[in-house]
């Protein structure tokens, strides 16, 4: 068997795998949106002066940051309902959606830490200056502290996204038909032995081409904001 037939075989399977990759991207985008939103609340909760809220938020953040992503995925897949009924209509929750929710949890916990870290990196003097001018704590947080935090949170947030996209293939283990699952399917149906390595290399390249530019932009942004 020659080089060209392997290459043509790869090209034959490429659209199939690429559509699977589109699912990886979809899962990652949904999960980053959900996780960021939840993470903001958790992050604020961590710095709250209300003891109960602070305790619960910190506990939740620690719990979900230190749990393996795969375990959280299993948790969501097994313990989430397969369908739910609203006003007589039954909706099925597809496995990719359940996996997406499973990914949102560690994303939220990680972003909660990013938020907490960014707020903590603002000098205490800013809080004091606002306080002596009569601003309440909440108003100070939103008008004075947070606007300064946004640039600090951007690079780690992008890093988190890069981490997330490289975690999405874990969904194949719980039955989601994404890029890795499709690559495995392709490999299993092609009998010729020389197909295995090039096919996996193709998959690795796909992820690399998507994630690497994001990492570069994140690093460039970090350098740019360094002077602030």
């Amino acid at each position: 068997m020659s080089e060209t037939t392997i290459l043509t075989d790869i090209f034959r399977w490429l659209p199939f795998v690429l559509w699977g990759f589109a699912l990886n991207i979809l899962m990652s985008i949904l999960a980053i949106m959900l996780g960021t939103a939840a993470g903001v609340f958790l992050g604020f909760g961590q710095i709250s002066h209300v003891r109960l809220i602070g305790r619960i938020s910190r506990l939740a953040t620690q719990l979900f940051r230190n749990a393996p992503w795969l375990v959280l995925l299993f948790y969501c897949i097994f313990l989430m309902p397969y369908s739910f009924t609203v006003s007589g209509v039954t909706y099925n929750v597809p496995s990719w959606l359940r996996a997406t929710l499973g990914f949102s949890v560690p994303v939220a916990a990680n972003f909660s830490e990013i938020v907490r870290g960014a707020i903590g990196s603002i000098p205490k003097g800013q809080w004091e200056a606002a306080e002596v001018l009569g601003y309440t704590r909440t108003v100070t947080l939103f008008r004075i502290i947070l606007p300064q935090c946004v640039t600090r949170m951007l690079p780690p947030w992008m890093n988190l996204y890069a981490l997330l996209i490289t975690a999405t293939p874990l969904a194949s283990i719980v039955g989601v038909d994404e890029a890795l699952a499709r690559t495995q399917a392709a490999v299993q149906s092609e009998v010729q032995p020389g197909f295995l390595i090039p096919m996996y290399l193709t998959l690795l390249t796909m992820f690399f081409l998507y994630a690497y530019p994001i990492s570069r932009v994140s690093a460039a942004l970090e350098r740019r904001f360094q002077t602030v």
Partner: peptide, 17 residues
């Protein structure tokens, strides 16, 4: 109270944004 009493700090603490 904060209306009545103003304060200037050693580190100025102006809002950079």
């Amino acid at each position: 109270l904060r209306h009545r009493v103003g304060m200037v700090f050693q580190q100025y603490n102006l809002f950079p944004h």
